[in-house]
Simulated scan of single mutants.
Amino acid sequence: MSSNLRINYTIDPDPAALALRAAHHMLELAEEAVEARGRCRIAISGGSTPKATFRILADPAQPFVSRMPWSQIELFFVDERTVPPDHPDSNYRMTKEALLDHVPIRPEQVHRMQGELEPEVAAAEYEFDLRRTFRLEGAESPRFDILTLGMGPDGHCASLFPHTEALHEIGRLVAANHVPQMNTWRITLTWPVINHAREVFFLIAGADKADRAKQVFTGPKDVETLPSQLIWPASGILTLLMDKAAAAELPPTGADGKGHLERAR
């Protein structure tokens, strides 16, 4: 993992513009991955901004349906709620309804976390799936080409919530994480796996994220309280795609709407 982190961020005027930028960003990265390696493995998060992005990717009036290399994509999940796949809270259901039902991607290209199983079983099954798909041995981690994250108002990302056990998990690829503050369990990729991805980017929208974004990306290190600070990609580069409200307390960008921060470990 790089000792220094460059955080590149772009700011769009509203969530709709942010979702469109995210769709273009995913297309560009997917095309690059396919050109370089013949396929693109993407790990996605749930949330309202990804949902809007998925709808744009699936919109026949947009260029993405025809340009995205769907046949060469494998889709994975960053985290999942402990619910069946048809439950309204399921990240899989959201993704299926917003994206998968409308694009030429086959069921075998989609790797679902089985939230209907006991949490520890679901985590173990997904780790087995990752090891088999990526042909991993020993302590190896999967290398996703693209990994998307959101950030909650409490500073969590994936299902790595403040003061939960999964923040300390470094030996497993997938963890069953009990979240006492929500009285629930979640299934989540662990932070070393997230950091091993080639391209990691956050989608952050809304005024309720502004203060937390400032704390996470410019404040002192406190990963127990601000788990998003655990995201420090091995590449040394982290990308933030934000709307104006979420970025209100970050340093202003240039005329091109882009800015950057430098963090030392």
Rank of each mutant, 00 (worst) to 15 (best):
P119F: 06
I170Y: 01
E140K: 02
F77V: 03
L117W: 09
L173Q: 12
S159I: 03
N183W: 06
P60A: 13
T184P: 02
E137T: 15
E169P: 00
L160N: 03
H111Y: 14
G171P: 00
D79M: 06
M182Q: 15
F77D: 05
L100H: 00
P63N: 14
E97H: 05
T188V: 09
Q72I: 05
G171W: 02
A124R: 15
Q109F: 08
H156W: 03
F128G: 11
E127K: 02
D89N: 11
L99M: 13
P69W: 01
S90P: 03
Y92P: 00
Y126E: 13
T148K: 03
L75K: 07
P104R: 12
M113A: 07
W185M: 05
A175W: 00
E80T: 10
A175S: 14
P142R: 12
P153R: 10
S141W: 05
V65Q: 14
P63G: 14
N177H: 06
T164S: 09
E137C: 08
F64Q: 10
N91H: 12
G152Q: 07
D154Q: 06
R132G: 03
V179R: 01
F134P: 05
T148F: 02
I105S: 10
M113F: 01
P153M: 06
G138P: 07
P85I: 11
Q114S: 14
I187C: 01
R143I: 15
